[in-house]
Amino acid sequence: MTDLLFQAFIAAGGTAGFCIIFRVPLREIPICAIIGAAGWILYNVVLLTGDDNKVFATFLAAALVGLLSEIAARIFKEPTTLFTVPGVLSLVPGFHIFKAMEAVMDNNMDSSESWVTITFKLAAAIALGLLAIGAIFNAAHAIFNKTKHVTTDMMGTLKNMTTPPGKK
């Protein structure tokens, strides 16, 4: 339990560091840190449940980060990217990238292959986790806001826009 708290703390700290570099507005930095910590905790909890399935754990954690980011974006009326980009970084396989390169440099074919493969698998897991949540929210947004497929005439004039035109 204390270990999980410590993990949450370091993930939040690392995420906050990225927020500073990416110039996230001060007001949103704590929220990004919480989202990053939540993702990392879920990753660790999934690993604690037994089998050492890092790829699936990363997928679930990335999906949680995506979900929390979409919710935060709607609460604070900010772009979703602002929360996803720092939040997902604690899951990025930096360790595996380095290990893969080290194995390649050592000319150790078997271990380099497996390190490169796991790196790509982890990156793909992050991508799919975010993609799944993003796709669900996109579809829900389009259906609830009744965004129709926009048609245009020959000039390219929009025929059925939802936003009222007219500013001069």
Partner: peptide
């Protein structure tokens, strides 16, 4: 920003 980068180094080496 340097402080932020140093924080990233610190916390991610723990991770």
């Amino acid at each position: 920003k340097l402080g932020g980068a140093a924080m990233i180094g610190l916390f991610f080496s723990f991770i």
